[in-house]
Nucleic acid binder design. Structure first.
Lengths: 193, 193
DNA sequence: AACTCTATCTTGACAGTGTAAAGATTCAAG
DNA sequence: CTTGAATCTTTACACTGTCAAGATAGAGTT
């Protein structure tokens, strides 16, 4: 039982994590600034010392989850041969399975999200959405080695992202019934391209 | 100037259409029952004569838009040869372009939506999400004629849906920059499979 | 034509929300 | 020890979804 102090000491991070917990347990619908504040043992307006609005806290929470997502994606290709197509398949499978394991996160991350991506792929992709950037770099590496022209690879990148993102969207829809093993089926579908 | 009558006469439909207008103009964020009621020239609690909750009105609005979406999809393959793969491409292109023309609708229809789909495709698909059902029937028709086994066609259906749904999701993200012609690119990507 | 029933809309209230302003408390630097 | 900045509380306001009670109007019956 932590003693009740005037200064919380770690409120900013506590708000972010409590907010994510709240979304996991009750859904974004029942999320509110005041409830998150209460969960951290703090009053109404305390969050405004760290965030200028509810939306800013939600953005911070999205970044937190996105970092977690990106870390898992990176780990999924850690021991793979980065010049082989199997790495792309591993990455795509991880993309979908992350949201099958955490269905709440899909809507949370992508509905009214601040994902930034240059689909023209002209610049260095520095401020692109990190999961997309992982997929983009890996795909250019693999298909570049195979001698495919840049423009064709661009189409492949978009196609790959659409496939895995679409599969994640479908798999996490609330009214979906599916008896089979997603992990297996996803691999079949990705490989089949 | 409609005279101010106690009974609106057409409130239910008026609420649905005014609600959709509100979402188109200000986004789901600023949608509220009271504002929609005001737009229809009616007070706070009037909507409760036609809907038991805010969520019920939102569902009705989603159905309204989904019907519009389904009608456009049907029209897109009206003059096509339903045994040819080109029909599938037309349908898929229409799926994506609908949301590129109406970006607000993607989040509105699919975030926390009540889409119902049996991906096992065992029953007759009677209460499946209509746009999916269009794609499913058409695909079984085309690839059935080509002699492909049922299980393989099932995978193709899911893959097709994931692709067009994913493309729509990506194309309607707020932070996406893309200089080329979506309609052309989408066709390339769908055909390439 | 008068009456009644029912669907529809209004009024007023309540708890919960995001947010702003003003004040209280603590901590760290000088 | 003092002072200033950072952090948290208190209070207040407008807005929200929802409910209960009452007002109104139209449709059907007699």
């Amino acid at each position: 039982m932590a003693e009740k102090r005037y200064h919380h000491g770690n409120l900013k991070e506590c708000l972010i994590e409590a907010g994510i917990d709240l979304i996991n347990e009750e859904g974004e619908k029942h999320f509110s600034l005041r409830r998150v504040a209460a969960l951290c043992g703090v009053t109404n307006a305390a969050p405004y010392s760290h965030f200028n609005s509810k939306e800013e806290l939600l953005n911070a929470m999205q970044n937190y989850v996105t970092n977690q997502f990106t870390a898992e994606l990176k780990k999924s290709i850690k021991d793979e041969d980065l010049d082989s197509p199997t790495a792309i398949i591993k990455l795509g499978k991880c993309y979908v399975m992350f949201f099958i394991r955490n269905p709440q996160y899909f809507d949370f991350l992508f509905s009214q999200s601040s994902v930034r991506v240059d689909l023209n792929m002209n610049d260095d992709g520095a401020n692109n959405y990190p999961p997309f950037e992982l997929l983009r770099k890996l795909t250019f590496r693999v298909f570049g080695k195979m001698g495919l022209p840049q423009e064709e690879i661009k189409d492949i990148v978009i196609s790959e992202w659409a496939t895995v993102h679409g599969l994640a969207a479908i798999a996490t829809m609330k009214g979906i019934s599916y008896d089979h093993d997603w992990e297996q089926k996803i691999e079949d579908i990705i490989v089949h391209e």
